[in-house]
């Protein structure tokens, strides 16, 4: 997969002229891909998680949101504009298993490519953050995100897009995200993506009967900075397993790179047709529009 993706972008680079606009456009696509293993990310190991829901409270505190009201034996929940992460429990073939849901922080995020004001943006060190001063509230990020993560405050007159930002503010101060910092079971491991993948492989190798031999997020949507290890098949845990392995911005790349040529060549062609058809009737026109 990686080879395909790399080659694909190398080929894209070769046609630099037509692509110059599209390439420059998404710095996230061009630069970060070179070293996407250097991004900060998270590895969630659901064999360690005990669904204490502590991370949900820590997340709310770190983002200035109200503490969530979590019932005993909660049903399967989704994240929403007031709760940026939830931990769900599924009955699987391997017994009850937990899944923490939040933004996946794609290496090449669809939301970033979709955003026309660069409000949604992949930072160089990994987090995909939303910036209030830029967003105009069009919600195109919500249409584009394959994981349905950005949430919108419909009841507000100055609505925000709410989603996990990998505690970008805390990271700037050298601290790790609140959920990982506080996790009592060390189910959350924060670090460079490269190291996380190594660690995940090691765990699978050492205890092959305990883990499914797959790292969710290594290739999904072109690779994500948040990755999962699981003791039960991912499809039994509510994961989207049909997510394409190449990046989502790649889906619009063809269209975007065709814009500049069309903008330049079509007027020339039209002018040509105009010149070709006008001559005969030049004298009889009494009025031009």
């Amino acid at each position: 997969m990686i080879i395909n993706r790399r080659n694909f972008f190398k080929a894209m680079g070769a046609t630099a002229v037509a692509l110059s606009i599209g390439k420059e456009a998404s710095a996230s696509a061009g630069e970060i891909l070179q070293n996407d293993d250097e991004l900060n990310g998270m590895l969630y190991d659901n064999t360690k998680c005990i669904a204490c829901h502590g991370c949900e409270y820590d997340c709310a505190e770190a983002h200035g949101l109200e503490y969530p009201d979590i019932p005993e034996n909660p049903p399967i929940r989704k994240t929403n504009e007031a709760q940026l992460t939830v931990v769900n429990t599924y009955e699987t073939s391997k017994g009850p298993m937990h899944v923490k849901v939040q933004c996946m922080h794609c290496n090449q995020p669809a939301c970033d490519a979709a955003c026309l004001t660069q409000a949604m943006h992949k930072m160089e060190d990994g987090p995909v953050v939303w910036r209030e001063d830029k967003c105009m509230g069009c919600r195109y990020c919500m249409i584009s995100c394959p994981f349905d993560i950005p949430k919108f405050e419909y009841q507000s007159t100055n609505p925000r897009i709410m989603k996990c930002d990998l505690c970008y503010e805390r990271q700037k101060e050298g601290e790790m995200p609140a959920c990982a910092y506080n996790c009592p079971q060390e189910a959350l491991l924060f670090g460079k993506r490269r190291d996380l993948i190594k660690e995940a492989r090691k765990r699978i190798h050492e205890e092959p009967e305990k883990y499914i031999d797959y790292i969710y997020g290594e290739y999904e949507a072109g690779g994500t900075s948040w990755m999962y290890l699981s003791g039960a098949p991912f499809e039994e845990l509510g994961f989207k397993t049909n997510i394409q392995k190449s990046s989502y911005p790649g889906l619009t790349k063809g269209f975007i790179s065709s814009i500049a040529p069309v903008d330049i060549l079509l007027p020339a062609a039209l002018l040509g047709i105009y010149e070709a058809t006008k001559s005969r009737t030049n004298h009889s026109t009494e009025e031009e529009e």
Binding site: I21, G22, E24, A25, S26, A29, D112, A113, A114, C115, L116, T117, Q118, A119, K134, M136, C138, Y140, P249, T252, F255, I256
Partner: peptide, 15 residues
């Protein structure tokens, strides 16, 4: 933001 160009998201189809 989109019009005066302090935040051009030129990779965006919507832009």
């Amino acid at each position: 933001n989109v019009i005066i160009g302090n935040n051009f998201g030129v990779s965006s189809v919507l832009f």
